[in-house]
Each structure stands twice: as structure tokens, then as C-alpha cells.
């Protein structure tokens, strides 16, 4: 089996001062997208590698304990893995989204330590989902959204990822082709197949 990690082992410290590397914003956003649409472990390995040491550093500052810092790394990266589909590139940088996930996990951990309660209320305070635009969506739309997601899960993975990309993450077909590294024509044909299938499943009332 091919190892998932991008780099093996620890790099020796060179002792040289190098220019601060640029944040690889596009790679991070692309990786979140690949994790969301195809549970891509290689992409997650990139995020894991990039964020683990930084979250750990933040955790040590926050909790003053290495064990708790590692718990924060685990909590945050688990959420990144399981909630990557809630990230919307048009709302901000990938780093900002991961920061909010980490801040929420840290808040819940601090509260657990203080009140020894298991309740997690960070997502009540800082919701990771978009609030509905006031006046634009009725509640029935949310139900419908939920239903569409259930239908989506029944699609083959290749079709599901183009539908998710175009309709849930608002990417253009060209952007999506670039993300998935496939020709635009393939995006179009997968989308057509997926929509046909959804239509069959959902019945005629959705014309």
C-alpha cells in the first residue's frame, strides 16, 4: 500500500533563516474540496501535515498542556475531515475556516474543563452552516434540501462530486474540471447523468 503521507519523517533543522513561505491558500482550499467530495485521504494528509503542528502550538498556548494540545489537534482535524463539505471558498480562506473549527473545539474543551459538562455549544454560538438569507428561503426549502442530499448519497461517487461542486459549492464547471483534474466535457456529461438520475428518483413534481 502506498503511504498517504506526503513527506516522511522529520526534516532536520537546518538552522538557516528562510523567508516565510507563502500560505498555500489554493492547495488548502482544493484539498478541503477533495476531502468533501471524494473523501480523498491524500488531500487530507496534506491538510493534516500543514495544520497539525500549528494547532498543537495554538493548543499549548491555550491550555498550557501538551496532552490537551494534542486533544485539540485530534478534535479539530476530525471535524475538518467530517465537515469539509461545509466549507465554502467564496466565504473566505481555507485557513479562516479551519481556524473557526479549531476555535470552536477549543471553546468546547475549555468549557468541559470548567463545568465538567459534556454539552458542546460552540456550534450554537458559531454555526458552521450558513444561515438562511432572511426572507429568501421558506422552511420547506430546507426540508427539500435535506431530501436532495439523501438522493445525492445514492449517486455514484463520480457523479455526486460534480453535483456537490456545482450546486452546493457554487463552482463553475471549468473550476470543477480543474479541481478534479478531468476535462470539462467529462464534468458536463457526469452532471447530465446525475441530474437525469436525480429526476427519476425524485419524481415529476420537481419539474
Amino acid at each position: 500500500m502506498v503511504s498517504q503521507q506526503l513527506q516522511t519523517g522529520c526534516k532536520p533543522k537546518t538552522g538557516q533563516f528562510t523567508a516565510m513561505p507563502e500560505t498555500p491558500s489554493k492547495e488548502l482550499a482544493n484539498s478541503l474540496f477533495a476531502v468533501a467530495t471524494s473523501r480523498d485521504k491524500r488531500a487530507f494528509a496534506f491538510l493534516f501535515q500543514y495544520f497539525s503542528p500549528k494547532i498543537k502550538r495554538f493548543g499549548i498556548k491555550q491550555f498550557g498542556s501538551e496532552a490537551q494540545a494534542m486533544e485539540l489537534v485530534q478534535e479539530t482535524l476530525t471535524s475538518v475531515w467530517r465537515k469539509a463539505h461545509l466549507y465554502h471558498p467564496e466565504k473566505g480562506a481555507a485557513t479562516t475556516w479551519v481556524y473557526t473549527v479549531m476555535r470552536n473545539a477549543s471553546f468546547d474543551m475549555l468549557r468541559k474543563m470548567k463545568s465538567s459538562k459534556e454539552e458542546c455549544i460552540s456550534e450554537d454560538i458559531w454555526p458552521l452552516i450558513d444561515e438562511a438569507e432572511p426572507g429568501q428561503h421558506e422552511f420547506s426549502d430546507h426540508l427539500e434540501d435535506k431530501q436532495i442530499k439523501q438522493y445525492l448519497d445514492r449517486l455514484p461517487q463520480a457523479q455526486r462530486e460534480v453535483v456537490r461542486g456545482v450546486y452546493f459549492q457554487d463552482m463553475s464547471q471549468e473550476q470543477l474540471a480543474e479541481h478534479l483534474n478531468i476535462p470539462v466535457g467529462t464534468v458536463k456529461s457526469r452532471l447530465r447523468l446525475a441530474l437525469q438520475k436525480l429526476r427519476n428518483e425524485m419524481g415529476e413534481q420537481h419539474d
Binding site: C10, K13, T23, F51, P53, K54, R57, V98
Partner: peptide
Amino acid sequence: AFEDVVNDDD
């Protein structure tokens, strides 16, 4: 929070 530092590589 996510500023790069050289020590990260450790």
C-alpha cells in the same frame, strides 16, 4: 494562529 514557523518541521 497559522503563521508559519521554522520549528513546525520538527
